[in-house]
Write a protein that binds this DNA or RNA. Structure first.
Lengths: 208, 208
DNA sequence: CCGGGTGTCGAACGAGCGTTCGGCGTCAAC
DNA sequence: GTTGACGCCGAACGCTCGTTCGACACCCGG
């Protein structure tokens, strides 16, 4: 049926427009009237495609996360070397982030705006995504030797490095995603399993 | 005058209560009625201490940032070794973050909620804080040799590691701030100026 | 005893919110 | 040519929002 396809395409356009506005103004500061104006549909027309404002946010977050998950699984599929798996995980994350800045900012910054079943569904994807990274880190440790920091700290810290970029990174600026991806990879791996900083220059760190 | 002091103390208590609610529910989702209920003052009573909801958020952000700045300047004062200055910068940031979780979450997560003069004032402090870190990194490079990644990327990435903690860290859990601070310091320094990961295990990173 | 500043409050205002409802045109199916 | 689903809309509803206003108790200097 061509009807269904046209319907889906319009819904996709709606979600994309909504993600743009949510990313700029924030979810709660954005009214349904704002979204209607921005997407060229009437206020009540929005409700033909979406049950509520909550569901709108959920659809943006759930679809984005599903896309990141699928893209990540394809990126690391068949790769054996744990360090390369990690590099691809990071690269995929940043690459998707940079090319879907609005959706990913909404996903990162508006994670607390959902509740109930919507929240559970998104959190399930988040937990799976996190688990994959932690498993990779465990493999990296087996290959490169004992890590220098607790794996849980390393995991969340790495997510911090990557997800914080919505606060400063401009995909259209003169800093390419490749450079950014390599930099974060280097930064993280050097600290996680690389040679430790010598004690002579950093006495404070070995005291505890 | 004892009047003035009592007034200030009540305002402080008000701001602390507001920061708690803002941190839990978010700025825009929190109503002045919520704040009144939570702080034991009537709705209109709030406006005796504060001109508007915007000013309330501004006061929380501005005072917190001023406190972090002052604490940081004291922490690095008199320290010559750049690496130790960096370690103290990180430690101060995380220590203050962990002991003022609500205010710092509001500062990090609600940075886009202000506008106009309020925004400019907070941004001025933010720029100064960032500049201090970048200057330290420049000194670190002079001491430890060329950095492995661009300084601007390193700066924002380090802030990402540190500020992201409001998404996962529980100051009352079994992970101490000391361990967290040392971990992030190690993680960052190892990747920024430490021995690079050997090419044999990470061919992909040296390709570009 | 009295007058004015201080701290607090209940009640109300206008505006904007998310959502609903009834209806209207279009177009393919019969 | 009639029917009914589809896509879409204007108008309205009930509610909550930030903010204001007038008033009331309290306390301290005169």
């Amino acid at each position: 049926m061509a009807h269904q396809q046209a319907h889906d395409e319009k819904l996709d356009a709606l979600l994309a427009a909504a993600a743009r506005v949510f990313a700029k103004r924030g979810y709660h500061e954005t009214s349904m009237r704002d979204l209607a104006r921005e997407s060229g549909v009437s206020l009540s027309g929005l409700y033909y495609y979406v049950k509520s404002k909550d569901e709108l946010l959920f659809l943006i977050q759930d679809r984005s996360f599903a896309a990141v998950l699928a893209s990540m699984e394809e990126a690391i599929a068949g790769i054996e070397n744990p360090v390369e798996r990690l590099a691809r995980f990071i690269d995929n994350h940043l690459d998707y982030f940079a090319s879907h800045m609005a959706e990913m900012k909404v996903l990162s910054h508006e994670s607390g705006a959902l509740s109930g079943d919507f929240l559970s569904q998104v959190n399930a994807k988040k937990r799976e995504y996190t688990r994959v990274l932690m498993d990779i880190l465990a493999d990296v440790e087996r290959t490169c030797g004992a890590a220098h920091v607790n794996r849980r700290i390393a995991t969340y810290t790495l997510f911090g490095m990557m997800n914080w970029i919505y606060n400063w990174y401009d995909p259209l600026g003169d800093l390419s995603v490749e450079v950014l991806s390599q930099s974060i990879c280097r930064l993280f791996l050097g600290g996680y399993v690389g040679m430790p900083v010598s004690e002579s220059v950093m006495p404070h760190l070995t005291a505890g």
